[in-house]
């Protein structure tokens, strides 16, 4: 199985990556070889095998429902490029 140029461009768009034409060629090649590997793995008989959602043989630990964190807004906002009235500012999103 291989992936075509449109496929690469679509994935890049979904991941918000800007690719040059040269990049697209290169990714088309490397992603196709990943897919070839997947194809090869698909020939293994997995009847009766539960899909693995995590390689650790452990289950999720739970947290008590307690407020343990205090307000650290000033520290968080200090990382932002632009802020106003306690908000992070980002380029206008229209949707």
């Amino acid at each position: 199985m291989s992936i075509d140029k449109q496929g690469v461009q679509k994935i890049a768009h979904l991941a918000r990556l800007a690719l040059t034409d040269e990049d697209v060629d290169q990714y088309q090649h490397s992603l196709s070889s990943v897919l070839a590997l997947v194809e090869q793995m698909q020939s293994v008989n997995t009847d009766g095998v539960e899909p693995l959602s995590n390689p650790l043989e452990m289950t999720q630990r739970l947290r008590e429902d307690k407020v343990t964190e205090e307000n650290r807004r000033d520290a968080f906002l200090a990382n932002a490029a632009q802020t106003e009235a306690g908000l992070f500012l980002v380029p206008k999103v229209i949707d």
Binding site: F88, P91, K92
Partner: peptide, 12 residues
Amino acid sequence: LHEDFQGMTGID
């Protein structure tokens, strides 16, 4: 929040 931030969007 899309209003009133010098053409930018505010995030809470």
